[in-house]
Simulated scan of single mutants.
Amino acid sequence: MNFTDRAIRALKSQDQRYEVLEDGRTGLRLRVSTAGRKSWLFTYRKGGKLNRITLGVYPEMSLAQAREEVSQRRSLLNRGLDPAHIERTHKEEERQAPTMAQLAELYLERYAKAKKRSWREDERLLKKDVLPRWGHRKAKDIVRRDVVMLLDDIIDRGSPIVANRTLACVRKMFNYALERSLIEMNPCSAVKMPGKERKRDRVLNEEEIRTFWHGLKEARILLPIRLALQLQLVTAQRKGELIRAEWSHFDFASGWWTIPAERTKNHLAHRVPLSPLALESIEGLRGFHPLFLFPSRNGEKPLLDTSIDHAVRKNLDVLGITPFTPHDLRRTAASHMTGMGISRLVVSKILNHAENGVTAVYDRHSYDPEKRQALEAWGKKLEAIIRGKESNPASLAAVR
């Protein structure tokens, strides 16, 4: 039959389904069902076997489109390939391709939980904005436009920094999928951070430190969280490393806290000297838990980072100073120490910042004496600030 739209429209249903072949041995056929439904087929022989591939439904797929589909499959045959096998393989790959919900679970379990202490934040971001929108879709079907629209919606609700964090999380997840050949490209490629990041430089002055310290006594904050905030200011250590501390990490006889390498950001063990003020705060934690200094409510694990943040946000009015974050306490301690004349190198050692370059490779000095002298001097100054008296720290000649 010479296929034309007019001839195809003229085909009527019969008591049984039938097929009409296009003239010229093209392999294109039209099947007409008993209900009058018309479907395009491509038939060909390979290895002595007749193969049939359904192409689409007429008129949704036009005659020209059907012929183009046949041409593409003929091209595969001319290259020695089997179109039916390729389509079966494609359908199986499509069936096995992970949805976004499955990819998120794989990313969190196999990557984030093993390599990121902040994996709970990734989980929160994914559950809040990503999975409700994309969870049912195949990961390979997400394109750059989807990412941009997601970020635009977060921006529109007034959360530009959350948009930045979401993009960072999703980009990392898609990179993970790319490395495992679950997708062919990362849709976050070339997508820029939508929110303008403002570098935090909040440092509490002496009056704010005093108000904060005394305000903790009035705030509706659990004692372990209150002491964690005090210790972050006293020791200048990272919040996450502090709240995961275990009693076995402390040598109270010599006055040292050793943070194991697997708990630190730079994966290097870190020794923190304990000033009298730090020891006083730690003493208030005895009896809460045999393993953790800062146990969660159920006692099965340490406090979450977010518990500290939430407590501060809820009690800002009671604490009596302008908004700050727990991390600002670490910055405050570091800034006041350098203001006391303590060298930036020693402060960097106290903060356990990662170092690069040749000097870092060859400098194996522990800086333990300098760190102890610096933190004890900071502890004395902090005590004076809390009492509202002029501070007179010990000589800092050795740590300058």
Results as ranks from 00 to 15, higher is better:
Pro194Asp: 06
Asp201Thr: 15
Pro98Trp: 04
Ser254Met: 13
Lys314Met: 03
Arg120Gln: 06
Arg226Val: 03
Gln230Thr: 00
Asp363Gly: 01
Phe324Val: 10
Lys217Arg: 06
Ala334Asp: 08
Tyr176Leu: 15
Glu184His: 13
Leu131Met: 00
Leu28Tyr: 03
Ile321Ala: 10
Arg387Gln: 15
Pro160Val: 05
Gln96Lys: 15
Gly357Met: 00
Leu375Ser: 04
Asp141Glu: 13
Thr54Asp: 08
Arg271Cys: 14
Leu268Ala: 10
Lys217Gly: 03
Val272Asp: 07
His310Phe: 14
Trp247Thr: 13
Leu81Gly: 07
Ser159Asn: 01
Gly48Tyr: 09
Arg238Trp: 06
Val358Thr: 14
Ala377Arg: 04
Glu94His: 06
Val148Ala: 03
Glu19Met: 07
Ala311Thr: 12
Met61Asn: 12
Ala219Met: 08
Leu279Thr: 08
Arg200Ile: 08
Lys349Cys: 08
Lys116Arg: 15
Leu151Arg: 01
Lys265Val: 10
Asp201Met: 13
Ser62Ile: 06
Glu94Gln: 11
Val57Met: 07
Leu204Tyr: 08
His90Ile: 11
Ile386Glu: 07
Pro59Gly: 01
His267Leu: 07
Gly80Gln: 01
Glu280Gly: 06
Tyr44Lys: 06
Ile386Cys: 06
Arg372Gln: 13
Gly339Gln: 00
Pro393Cys: 07
Ala219Trp: 06
Asp129Lys: 03
Leu216Glu: 07
Gly255Lys: 05
His327Ile: 07
Val399Phe: 09
Ser33Trp: 14
Asp368Ile: 15
Val346Arg: 02
Ser348Gly: 15
Thr306Arg: 03
Arg330Pro: 11
Glu370Asn: 05
Ala261Asp: 12
Ala101Leu: 10
Leu125Met: 04
Ile225Asp: 02
Ala84Trp: 00
